[in-house]
Amino acid sequence: MKKIIVENLKYKYPLTESLALDNLSFEVEQGEFIGIIGANASGKSTLCQSIVGLVPHFYKGAYGGTVIVDGLKVMDHAVSDIALKVGIVFQNPFNQVTGSKLTVLEEIAFGLENIGVPQTEMLERIETVLELLNIAPYRERHPFDLSGGQMQRMAIASIIAMKPNIIVLDEPTSQLDPEGAEEVFQAIHRLSEQGITVIMVEHKMEKIAHYCNRVMLLQKGKMIDFDTPEKIFSRDDLETYGVTAPVYTRVCKALDLKIPGTDYYPVTLEQASRVLGGKIK
């Protein structure tokens, strides 16, 4: 089942000259884990926001083409309606705290209260996400007193509690230390295993290669390629798009070792060690 259908999407922010998104067309199946990569200002965040409806509803600006998310045409629905289908987590955990709640528990409940979930179901959902994201011990803490990683997991929990079928993550770990980032990745991985469609912008290519089914490469608002991590990271022109392949790919490329039977280089540690296994003792 197709969860996201984008056709000829064009978008220009107000008061700017060039297109932020230039004629994008693609489809995403249910349960896929999609990575979006590209240099700065290549349109990654704008694309994320166009899926949840912040583009065009929050920013206005010039909009063309169609985006259909789980059967809803984004252009014709309010962000609060689309929010029931797709959730988004932003880069800075700090700015996602509402600032009006006194405990983690109430903070997660904020979205549920707004969409009118009955109290008993609310409590159940909150318990589930607290466990899922491993933040149950902090339930009574003040939201601003959490560490960056905990705060970001709380932000993800707040979105997951609203039970979207799709979750969009815009550089969710860029402001976190390695430990905090790993906690977040594992949490997202668990969600993906539960069948939630995940779309993630991320600069840590090893992680993208490890978790994603398909990777989208963007440059200046245009889609350059949208394929498996192996194909994307084996491209010879990757550097010209401001992307560095995972370290495993670079090592194997230098040694000219491809995955047996294919034309592509290994992108994960497992693939690389299998290829290198016989050579390095």
């Binding site: 926001q49 949840v52 912040l54 929050f58 309010a78 962000v79 609060s80 929010a83 029931l84 959730g87 988004i88 932003f90 700015n95 996602q96 509402t98 600032g99 528990l105 109430e106 409940a109 904020f110 979205g111 549920l112 209260e113 707004n114 969409i115 009118g116 979930v117 009955p118 109290q119 609310m122 409590l123 909150i126 932000a155 707040s158 979105i159 609203m162």
Partner: peptide, 19 residues
């Protein structure tokens, strides 16, 4: 923060419930 509130249904029309 405005965007984060928006995607958490801050402007939802449905009647509010309480935790």
């Amino acid at each position: 923060r405005a965007m984060a509130l928006e995607v958490r249904g801050f402007n939802a029309k449905s009647p509010k419930t309480y935790l």
